[in-house]
Amino acid sequence: MIEVENISKSFGGQAVLKNISTTFDKGKTNLIIGQSGSGKTVLMKCCIGLIEIDKGVVNFDGRNFSGLNEKKKKNTRKEMGVLFQGGALFDSFTVEENIMFPLNMFTKQSIEEKLQRVNDVLSHVNLDNANKKYPAELSGGMIKRVAIARAIAMNPKYLFCDEPNSGLDPKTAERIDDLISELTEKFQMTTVINTHDMNSVLQIGQKIAFIHKGELWWEGDHQEILTSDNPELNEFVFSTELTRRLK
């Protein structure tokens, strides 16, 4: 479980996060939703310590994280898998080397064991023949899938995904969602996903935090989100023709 308590962040006087408190539960897919520019990425980066928070605390399973120095943060970070919004694959490495990288750095596995693991996670994301390709040779969706494979390669306890299925076709997007929720359940990870994709919200939104203008506006699950009477949330959820018909 990850606890976020009263965190605030501003950039040059402009408040991006205002006093946000929430929890992300273990074994669940926790979603952060909100419009573009609402602060989802900033919130996620505050949780993993890539952005210094101005105020507040972040705890991982009861252990304080945000107050630690860089050196001490390392230990918790080895238990995290992070998917960045743009993939952030290492451009000088092939797909295989990208996924093998954390294994090289932190395990003493033999090359065969590492290759086995690489192929395991690649087949999870339905990428079987891309081992020797460089990131520049991949499509946008393939980059996302390799990045997910890299994030789960070390069996993380905490998985953070910043828009895992944006830019993917609906079928692949759904497969990625299913994969993440399956892994979350199976390995009892604490998974945090940023998204503005309503399909994902309805499909895997076990716990949903809606961020609006930097504030935590609403919290609930994928049942409650359809029946809420919060006007800003409704505007967000029922913004497309498809979802309006659903209602």
Partner: peptide, 17 residues
């Protein structure tokens, strides 16, 4: 610099490197 703007440096950091 390219590794910085494409978040590869952040990716290294969150791996604990």
């Amino acid at each position: 610099g390219t590794k910085r703007v494409t978040e590869q440096i952040d990716a290294l950091k969150v791996m604990g490197i």
